[in-house]
Design a binder for these strands. Structure first.
Lengths: 365, 365
DNA sequence: ATGAAAGCGCTAACAG
DNA sequence: CTGTTAGCGCTTTCAT
């Protein structure tokens, strides 16, 4: 019937309520400084007409969009094989929603998309960006910082600090990969294990590199043959486990860089007739429920609160948006020295915020 | 240094190129009907100034946003435990990106969010919506259709057709759950199995109901005790398998409504000393790689192309947006009878498009 | 083929 | 406190 539904404008509401557009605008935006009876009348008119503000018109003048981009730079399908981003997104979404901000999702598949994303961000469509970039050599983060949009990173970016010079501090949220790894290895050691092997993730990702560092913190320089590099996948885990077993048949424990890898390793262990945890104790990382709880035996692992990471990223960004000047390009002197990180107060807007991890004990170690 | 980076406007480009704003606008939007030398000059000016159109201003006049909302209505955390939505999103994202559309993600957590989403959609922020609603009694789809935004649903909506009357046909994309289920059960039967059990998903979801129907298509009215209702989770699968085994110890095959459920069932089977596939052959549904390939034994299952579903949803929506009138509220007579569904041409914009499934044989059956 | 001018719907000074 | 008045940056008739 109604082919074009001509949405009512401020003007229409004003006419109906017998006031000026400005007054309606005031009421719609909180209604401060408008006398009660008028507020009431305007409210009613809005109600009756089913008025909804035109966001485009508003943005045009306010230069705010109440929208935040979430950029996930990951050419590999593998990312989608685990619920990591889904959980993170959920945390982000909750926080943004609570502050009436929209979430614009930008997924990239390889280099071709970089320019597109950079253009979009530079185009001022969103007030800020939350970006996930896993690899050390990813050019995207650089492009994004160049776009002049306030940004918070998910995971510690891998670049050296030099480049951050003229774009302000690089704000990121990460979990305590290194500390978590230490806990895992210490736990294994406390079980009396001494020949503790480690299967790493792709070492061009800071999370994997940090976990390896944690392992080394505890193990010192013991036998390098106990470390095998892998790729966070189950198949990679199988391969690495086989190598490890061939090289060091007497190993009595394994710390795998993530749960998927651990699952693969577990299969090889069983196939070789090794019992877990009796012969080889195994600890994973992530506490990815569908994996960790379903392995045989269920996996002891290091949990990170992924959803909370997302939440925190959003919170940090929104805070920066609220007080401009902390944004991009601002000369941001914060006194002598400065306080880059304050792990104790996750809400502190320091350069990096690191969330704690916890060891979850199940049957594998 | 540059505190406020005053983005160049059309005006600025026009001045630089020595033409009018109108001409710049034409060039920026394709440049038809502008003589080559001018086009060139404008292009250069755009380049030099780093001009990027202000989308808000543009939307204000065109009433297009080149943005599509993706609404995922799912209060349960479980959804995020599997990569289903991630894959779907990926497909959607690819398609939208290819057509220069943005993806606005709207995640809802329970009823409180419904009003928010409805308001957002009604607010005309996006040109269309892609919505996933799993449960029969979900009020959201209704609200959304009411909002007058062109919409395509992911998965066959569960409501009775009556309500679609005044909002035009309900367009959706689904995979052939029923046909896939039939294939699964037939495969089991072809293996010589006769006492084939079925663990269902939550029957208030059309996907689960359709799979049960497919099972019944093949099994007829045999022993209802061979069917156990469950919830798509591994734990639910365990529980259901135990029940089944208690009731019908002699069952020789299982068709599980999804891979997660099958994984749980597999564990119970092993725990009871039953060999798979020798004693009990098992088939799942989804072909969720991280699960299906990691079970012991690897799972024979029904694959659905999830990413393609997402792609197709986006394609269908964009097509509707391109030719208005096929949108909401349009009197959409398509001759006598009409052709609601044409499964053979997935790109046909019929009311429902159903994608085929394929059986993937692994070791479990 | 190009330019001039009129708005799209809203907010934000500024008056009163 | 409320109304008036300028635009925000862009597209789009309508002249030329």
């Amino acid at each position: 019937m109604t082919d074009t539904a001509p949405r009512p404008t401020l003007e229409a509401v004003a006419a109906r309520a017998g006031v000026s557009r400005a007054t309606v605008s005031r009421v719609v935006n909180g209604g401060d400084g408008v006398r009660e009876p008028l507020v009431e009348r305007v409210r009613r008119a809005v109600e009756e007409l089913g008025y909804v503000p035109n966001q485009a018109a508003r943005s045009l003048v306010t230069r705010r969009h109440d929208a935040v981009a979430v950029v996930i730079a990951e050419p590999e399908a593998r990312v989608f094989a685990d619920p990591f981003f889904a959980l993170q997104l959920r945390g982000i979404s909750k926080e943004l929603t609570a502050h009436d901000n929209q979430l614009v999702l930008l997924l990239t598949e390889g280099r071709d998309d970089h320019a597109r994303v950079a253009r979009y961000l530079a185009g001022g469509h969103v007030d800020g960006a939350l970006v996930f970039s896993l690899h050390l050599d990813d050019p995207l983060p650089g492009l994004i910082q160049g776009a002049g949009v306030p940004t918070v990173f998910g995971g510690r970016p891998g670049w050296s600090d030099g480049r951050a010079a003229d774009t302000g501090p690089t704000v990121y949220v990460d979990s305590d990969n290194r500390g978590g790894a230490r806990d895992a290895v210490r736990h294994l050691a406390s079980l009396g294990r001494t020949r503790i092997a480690h299967i790493t993730g792709p070492l061009d990702q800071t999370s994997a590199a940090d976990r390896l560092d944690g392992y080394r913190d505890v193990m010192g320089d013991t036998d390098p043959e106990l470390v095998a590099e892998s790729d966070f996948t189950p198949a990679g885990g199988e391969r690495a486990m086989r190598d490890l077993l061939d090289r060091r048949p007497a190993l009595d424990a394994l710390f795998a860089a993530n749960d998927l890898t651990a699952a693969g390793a577990l299969r090889v262990l069983r196939e070789r007739g090794l019992r877990v945890p009796e012969d080889v104790a195994v600890v994973g990382f992530d506490d990815m429920l569908p994996v960790a709880e379903q392995t045989d035996p269920p996996l002891t692992t290091v949990r990170q609160d992924i959803e909370e990471m997302g939440r925190l990223m959003a919170r940090l960004l929104l805070r920066r948006l609220d007080r401009p000047g902390t944004g991009q390009g601002a000369t941001d002197e914060d006194g002598p020295g400065g306080t880059p990180t304050a792990p104790d107060d996750p809400d502190d807007a320091g350069a990096g915020v690191v969330l704690p991890t916890t060891l979850v004990r199940r049957a594998s170690a």
